[in-house]
Design a protein around this nucleic acid. Sequence first.
DNA 1: TATCCGTGGCG
DNA 2: TCGCCAAGGAT
Length: 338
Amino acid sequence: MNPGSAASAGPARTPDTLGTPEPALTDLHGRVTDWFTRSARDLPWRDARCSPWGVLVSEVMLQQTPVVRVLPVWHEWLDRWPSPADLAAEPAGSAVRHWGRLGYPRRALRLHAAATAILERHDGKVPSTYDDLLALPGVGTYTAAAVAAFAFGRRETVVDTNIRRVHARLFGGSALPAPALTAAETKRAVALLPREDALSVRWNAAVMELGAVVCTARAPQCDACPVLDACAWVAAGRPDPEYVPKGQAWAGTDRQVRGAIVAVLRHADAPVPRSLLLNAPVDLGMGASDDGVAVVLPGPLAALHGLRAPTEQLERALEGLLSDGLAEELDHGIRLPG
DNA sequence: TATCCGTGGCG
DNA sequence: TCGCCAAGGAT
C-alpha cells in the first residue's frame, strides 16, 4: 500500500524508477515546498477564498495557454458567471464569445457543457472526486486530479507538462520528458507524492510552479533552483534533448482558417451570410447589409479574406466548426451557437 | 497512439 | 526573423 515501504534490505526505498531513499525524499519535499512558500506567484485561483468553480475554470483556461493571458479572461468569467448555474443559464455561444482570444475555443464550449452537467448531475456544485470530475466534458486526467487536489485538498497524482519536465531533469537526467506521458513517468510521480494530504497538495503545486518559472523548457534559471544540487540533469552536464519536438504547423492550416472564422462570428451581432465568409466582398467596406441581416466588423472579416484560403478549405473549415458545435447555421447566416 | 484543435510572446 | 512553447483533451 505504501509505495515507499516496500524495500526489504537497507534503508527504506521508493520504487526502482526512483531509487531515492526515504529521508532524501522527505528533504526534497521540504525544500521544494519551502521554496514555493517563499516565491509562489500570487494567482487568484490559488486564493483560499476561490471557489471550486473558479479553480475548474482556471484549469481549463490554462490548458495550453499561458497564465498572463488567462488572468483577465478568468476575472471576467468569474464576474459574469460566479457559479456553474450562471453559465449554464446562458447559450453556449456566449461562452465562446467571452472566451476572447485564449485559443482552442472548443474549451469554452466544453466548459459550458460541464456547467450544465454539474447542474444536472451534481446539484450545481462542482464534484470533488477524481472520477466525477473526469466524467465532465473537457476534463481529462490532469484537470480532474488538479481540481480534486487544489479545490478540495485531496491527495492526487497531478502530472502536467511542468511536472513531467522537472521529474525528467531532477530524477531522469534528461533535458525533456518523452513526447507522450509514459507509464513509468506516472509510476514515478505516484512514488514521489507525499503521504500526507495537505503536503501532497503543496508538493503538486510547488513542482508545477518550479517547472513554470524556474525549470522552464527553454532557458532554465538553475541558479534559482532549490534542488539544484540534487538534479540529475545538471549532474550529467545538462545533455541536449534526446529527440526533436516536431513543431506545430500553422500557416495555411485549417486551424488558422477556423480561428479566423470564429473571430468573425464572435464580433458579429447577427448571423453572417455564408457567402460573406466564403467569398471576399468586392468592396471590403463594412461588410454590412441594410435590412438587419448582418453587421460585421471589418477587421476580423478582412483578416479572414486576407488569408487567401482556397474556397475548398474555407468550406471544410466551416463544416468542421458546424459539426463541432462552435457555429450553427440558420436560414440567413451563420452564428455562434445560440 | 498520432493527430487535430488557437493564439501570441519570446529567445 | 521565426520556430518553439504554454497548468491538455478527444478521437
